[in-house]
């Protein structure tokens, strides 16, 4: 019996312990709550909506927030792509994909252009997405201000008052110390001129893709129990100073050793034998497409 058959098995001889899971795993009450919260998130771009996050068969911190969003809106006719660090074949992406397919029967793809739903951890695909697609991002830390303030009560108040002075001070101190903003990934952004938002641990390379996009971006933090969103055509601006600009990662003079791309985010691989460094596209689906696979 495969996973899909097992999930659908009816209750065993009246003892009530059989799986008998429903479409998209979550029960109706859970789905409705998540739907209500998603709509609120879309209506208040960048604001973190608290939700009663459910436990899933995937561990907390492994994409349960993104997964709950996906499960509350997925349709049997959807074409799903799941990536982890840009890679379709990464173990966690495969595990999540396998689970969603088992409880919904959706078709899977690695082609960004073909997908209707994409669930991702730490990357936005290189290929521009359209208004017919939704990108669902898995989020470990929904609170961008957590770097400067550990207490949720305090950060709530800071957001309510749009009091972001400590965040700006943090950037300023960084510059004093290093003469540069040293934030790598999870670069804080201002959404629609109001909320400072954590864009999830995507590299800075992906931040410009969120700005005035065609696509709806939904963010789910399962462990921290927050949902937030960036609607299409919404300004998403990284925090920067006039004389210290936000910059994406520098891959100057480097190219993908496989497809030759010079305009993608690259993974740096250390070749065991020689200690030589090689670069490959982080977005494996995009790289495959270029290689004609």
């Amino acid at each position: 019996m495969n996973l899909r058959e097992w999930m659908g098995r009816k209750k065993r001889d009246g003892c009530g312990n059989g799986p008998d899971y429903s479409f998209a795993f979550l029960d109706d009450v859970s789905k409705r709550e998540i739907r209500r919260k998603i709509l609120k998130a879309v209506a208040i771009p960048g604001y973190q909506v608290p939700f009663g996050s459910r436990e899933l068969p995937i561990a907390r911190g492994w994409g349960t927030g993104g997964l709950q969003i996906t499960l509350s809106l997925v349709l049997p006719e959807d074409i799903l792509k799941v990536i982890d660090q840009g890679c379709d074949g990464s173990v966690n992406a495969v595990n999540i994909k396998r689970f969603i397919q088992a409880v919904t029967g959706v078709r899977l793809t690695t082609d960004t252009g073909e997908a209707t739903l994409i669930q991702t951890r730490h990357r936005v695909p290189e290929e521009p997405m359209t208004d017919a697609q939704i990108l669902i991002l898995q989020v470990p830390y929904p609170e961008a201000l957590r770097e400067v303030e550990p207490s949720e009560r305090v950060t709530r108040r800071m957001h309510a008052e749009a009091d972001y002075s400590r965040m700006w001070l943090y950037l300023y101190e960084d510059i004093v110390k290093f003469d540069e903003i040293t934030i790598g990934y999870r670069y804080p952004v201002t959404v629609n001129g109001r909320y400072i938002m954590d864009p999830s641990p995507i590299p800075r390379w992906d931040i410009p893709k969120l700005h005035m996009a065609e696509t709806l971006f939904l963010f789910g933090a399962g462990r921290e129990k927050r949902i937030y969103a960036v609607p299409p055509h919404t300004p998403v601006v990284p925090l920067e100073f006039e004389d210290f600009r936000f910059r994406v990662e520098n891959f100057e003079g480097k190219a993908c050793a496989r497809c030759g791309a010079t305009d993608t985010y690259l993974d740096e691989i250390i070749d065991d034998a020689t200690g030589r460094r090689l670069f490959f596209c982080s977005d494996t689906g995009f790289c495959d497409k270029r290689c004609g696979e």
Binding site: A59, Q85, Y185, P201, R204, W205
Partner: peptide, 16 residues
């Protein structure tokens, strides 16, 4: 769950 999640690859973030 969160403790175990550090076992997941983080190479994109690390590259950044």
């Amino acid at each position: 769950g969160f403790c175990n999640h550090w076992k997941l690859p983080h190479y994109v973030d690390f590259q950044s």
